[in-house]
Write a protein that binds this DNA or RNA. Structure first.
Length: 692
DNA sequence: GAGCACTGC
């Protein structure tokens, strides 16, 4: 290991050197002119609680926006709302809102604060996530919510008028919802100068975020409105309570990171004191391979390796397999957890002392020209690398082994990843903004602008769905109905069409199933899973098969045993029931009639066509290997082997989504009659598609 | 006959 590894800095540098000149507030409210530029290292002081409290209150009092850079464990998430409440920001019925990008984080942070304050969760301190509203409209003063829920709330209350302070946490992750929210909050601020924003994050491009919120544009002031607020955001940095993590870099670049992973884990196990190891790889394939290699090597290398417990971790695992990683290591044993990005932010593992970072993760990229989203293995950013390293320092000082060179980290790794906004299909985003009355979508002020091509493509798709009119305004009622449904607009359109076709009950069921990851359990026994699927298979395709599964689940009285027997994921089915109930409620509110078509499957297929006509494909004439071409774009595509229509190859099909590997595979496919296409979208299929 | 990073409404 000595000649293999080169130690890096003793402590991970948590912010980039080039950002060393961040505007720093000295946290001394008595001298109001104490701005100064300080190097980040010198400002990373551990603020005593009272000083931290006074400076937060002072900054929020005097600035419309405050940016807090605070590492994990800095206490910012629970302390700030508490201080603000004590200072009266939640008086007179006003509410302090705090967003998180994940449901689990919302729940645990709210519970922690309620406990710290000695109040009952759901009263003074509450939270709202999808399917769960633990607040009391009379008493709740501090409310935690997911950023997506706050966005939904804006549809009823565009200025978020009941909130006096909005804190957006984990802003550095730059999730789609967070970025939309930040753009909208900047707009709201101009209408509501008294609204206070707090942008909180771990590492962040603090200067560029401050720049974004620094609204220099002069706007006519109303009489008496000048409240003396500073419009230039204040930046405050707080140190976390994490332990030091020593960073090691590899001396020479490796060509096979799987092999490098295995040998690194083995040398840690042989040479380092006890403590669990967390390895970051990219996906299920890599992880399963690494688990097998390490297990084999441990068996072959003598008694020193007996104490290894090697466990995979990714979201596709069953609940019980995932739970294994949380059980504490038995005495004298060392756990090695081989994980995807799920352990970077979504799950927190206790007892990790060593981290091995491959430097890669799978990332989604969207090509607006082909309208295809791809999942590709790509290098991570410095911010991710630091987040991964930080996972080693939660219980005691740790070590992080990076499978790339220090030179690569310093000179080649990008400092932050590409924001999700710039890697995604934007149909949902655009319709959300339209529903909020934002007409000039192309001129919207984003923290990170998406490409004009993605915007134009999203507008085109929404236009073809009949959701936007010639002036790019939401149509009535369809456009507004589609915007209200918390789904991809193509699925929403399918639900609205099902209303007239008299099959909304069935289509809502299918929509709910399509919106969970998979209702099938992922097992090694592929044959048995295929056999189980055959019990539900419908000749019309996967959508109808899903309906059969749902009906069987109801007949079994929603039994988990029945699910197990049929290779169906019980937790996924429970979620399907929740989503289905929510969709029914929204549909009713929108004035849709909930009707069942019983066994008239043709209307169900027509409803699918009404939403997904753009995904129609035709089997190539004389094709022997099941080659299809998309009607729009003539792309070569194939039915995925997991589909019940695999090898059936009906002449005309519609797919729900594409997965790209060496080929483009259609997942979740249904057969259609081509005449329905023109019926559903005459403007889209002006030429009769059967004329090929 | 093959593959599913991760969230969220």
């Amino acid at each position: 290991m000595a000649q293999f590894w080169k130690p890096g800095t003793a402590k991970p540098r948590l912010l980039d050197d080039e950002e060393g000149g961040v505007l720093f507030y000295s946290a001394a409210p008595s001298s109001s002119s104490s701005y100064g530029y300080a190097s980040l290292e010198s400002q990373r002081q551990r603020l005593p609680v009272f000083k931290y409290r006074t400076s937060i209150l002072y900054l929020v009092e005097t600035h419309s926006t405050t940016i807090i850079v605070g590492e994990t464990g800095s206490g910012k998430t629970t302390q700030i709302p508490q201080y603000l409440k004590e200072a009266g920001w939640a008086d007179n019925g006003r509410i302090i809102a705090c967003t998180q990008p994940r449901r689990l984080a919302v729940q645990s942070v709210a519970a922690r604060l309620a406990e710290e304050m000695g109040v009952k969760l759901g009263e003074e301190v509450g939270y709202t996530i999808r399917f769960e509203d633990v607040t009391n409209s009379d008493f709740t003063r501090i409310k935690f919510l997911t950023d997506g829920v706050l966005l939904r709330e804006m549809m009823d209350d565009p200025l978020l008028s009941k909130y006096s302070v909005i804190m957006v946490d984990e802003a550095h992750e730059r999730s789609l919802s967070t970025d939309i929210l930040l753009g909208l909050l900047k707009k709201i601020q101009r209408r509501r100068p008294e609204l206070r924003l707090i942008i909180a994050s771990a590492t962040i491009e603090a200067k560029s975020m401050a720049e974004f919120f620094h609204n220099r544009k002069r706007r006519p002031r109303l009489e008496g409105e000048d409240n003396g607020l500073q419009t230039e955001p204040a930046i405050l940095s707080v140190e976390g309570r994490g332990f030091n993590v020593q960073i090691f870099y590899i001396e020479e670049p490796v060509s096979d990171y799987l092999q490098a992973t295995v040998s690194t884990v083995m040398s840690i196990h042989e040479k380092e004191p006890m403590g669990d190891i967390l390895v970051f790889l990219t996906g299920q394939d890599d992880i399963d391979a690494a688990v097998q290699m390490i297990t084999e090597q441990a068996q072959n290398s003598g008694k020193s390796s007996f104490g290894l417990i090697v466990l995979p971790l990714y979201s596709g695992l069953s609940r019980s397999d995932q739970d294994l990683v949380f059980s504490p290591s038995p005495r004298g044993k060392r756990k090695v957890i081989i994980s995807t990005n799920i352990a970077e932010t979504s799950l927190t593992l206790e007892g990790i002392v060593y981290v091995v970072d491959s430097g890669f993760s799978k990332q989604r990229f969207y090509n607006p020209i082909t309208d295809i989203e791809n999942l590709v293995v790509a290098p991570i950013s410095k911010a991710s690398a630091r987040q991964r390293a930080g996972r080693a320092g939660r219980v005691r000082p740790g070590k992080c082994y990076r499978l790339y060179t220090e030179d690569y980290f310093v000179n080649e790794m990008s400092s932050h990843g590409i924001p999700e906004m710039q890697r995604s299909n934007l149909v949902s985003t655009v319709i959300q903004l339209k529903a909020l009355g934002i007409d000039n979508i192309l001129g919207f002020d984003w923290p990170a602008s998406p490409s004009p091509e993605s915007m134009v493509r999203a507008l085109e798709i929404l236009y073809s769905l009949g959701v936007l009119d010639d002036d790019a305004k939401l149509t009535s009622p369809v456009g507004f109905q589609v915007a209200e449904l918390p789904l991809d607009p193509m699925i929403s359109k399918m639900i609205i069409a099902s209303d007239q076709l008299g099959c909304s009950e069935e289509i809502i069921t299918v929509s709910a199933i399509l919106s969970v990851q998979s209702i099938w359990i992922s097992v090694k026994a592929q044959r048995e899973l295929d056999d189980a699927k055959l019990r539900f298979a419908a000749s019309e395709g996967d959508h109808v098969t899903f309906l059969n599964v749902y009906r069987g689940f109801l007949q079994s009285n929603k039994s988990s045993k029945w699910c197990h027997k049929n290779f169906i994921n019980y937790h996924a089915m429970k979620k399907v029931m929740e989503v289905r109930e929510q969709l029914r409620r929204v549909a009713q509110r929108l004035g849709l009639a909930l009707k069942s078509c019983q066994n008239d499957i043709q209307v169900l297929r027509k409803a699918v066509t009404a939403g997904f006509f753009a995904n129609a494909c035709r089997l190539e004439p004389y094709s022997h290997n099941g080659t299809y071409k998309t009607l729009r774009g003539s792309q070569e595509v194939y039915i995925h082997p997991s589909s019940v229509l695999f090898r059936v190859n009906p002449k005309w099909v519609i797919y729900h989504s594409l997965v790209s590997t060496d080929r483009q595979y259609m997942r979740n496919v249904i057969s259609i009659d081509p005449s329905w296409l023109r019926e559903a979208a005459p403007h889209f299929y002006q030429l009769n598609p059967t004329h090929h």
